[in-house]
Amino acid sequence: MSDARNLLLEWAARGALSPAKLEAAMHLGGVVPDHARWRRFVDSLLLWLGAALLGAALVFFLAYNWDAMGRYLKFALAEGAIVLALGGVLWRGVDAPAGKALLFAASLFTGALLALVGQTYQTGADPWELFAVWALCILPWTLLSRLAAQWLLALGLLNLSVLLYYQTFLGFPLLGALFGPMAPCWVLLGLNGMALAVWELARLRGGDWLKPRWPLQLIGAAVMATATVLGLWAAIDAGRESLTEALGWAGCLALVYAVYRRRQRDLFMLAMAALSVVVVVNTWLGRQLVESFSDPRILLVSASFLASSTLAARWLQRVAHEAAP
């Protein structure tokens, strides 16, 4: 739907498709829905919106009565929701869209149950443990689901767990000694990098559910964001102690280039890498040249931002040309 739309709009903007014929082209390309697609859309919208409002009504009702409820009723509700969702999965089957949605819902309800356990029993557990245990509990369902969103949920929980761990303990003993205050970044880079690598490999051998690029691009954006933080640390610190971070950032960029330029061309990943280069290099430049905002050399930094992003856009344009059929 959207790819055909973007293509047709691009062709019209470049004069390859006459503006007067754009609307007809949109109908022919299947962008403008016909009567049947509208019926299916309205049917789905009413179903999901109605179900979502009923679900929200339940949450609001529970919130209203929460203080008045006994401990056992609260647990019965939380566990009952999981059992019902799993019952639905058994009924519809794990391969059906409804089954996958119910398995996802059961995964979310598991988090609510664990939070309830923590709140009720005050075990002294740290917040990071909640998310780590949550990810572990839903691992079997994640393996069964063959749903990208489910895998992203599990990965997201692990990321959150790492961040909260470091917030609590200020660094895992071994890694902290080796890598200093950037230890959380290194761990996240390793975690998300590994997830990206495994997903790409699985995609080469796996089923249809692994084909879409958007989950990989989401993980790739997280990898580049973390690498950029390392690069910024090196750029701002600019000393010998931050050499490891600089090498880590550069290494990550080199890998992204090797994979997404040479093996599996992905313009989105390359654009994220290009943005990382623009931000880190110009931050380093600013750190070297500029002492305050009143320093005229800041104009050089501005010009460098503009020039580097322009060069990056031109390079991406060249790559896109090479990728054209």
Binding site: N6, E10, W11, A13, R14, A16, L267, F268, A271, M272, A313, L316, Q317, V319, A320, H321, A323, A324, P325
Partner: peptide
Amino acid sequence: QPVPEAGRRWYV
């Protein structure tokens, strides 16, 4: 068919 332009993509 025209060659695609990267500059029009939202992430660029």
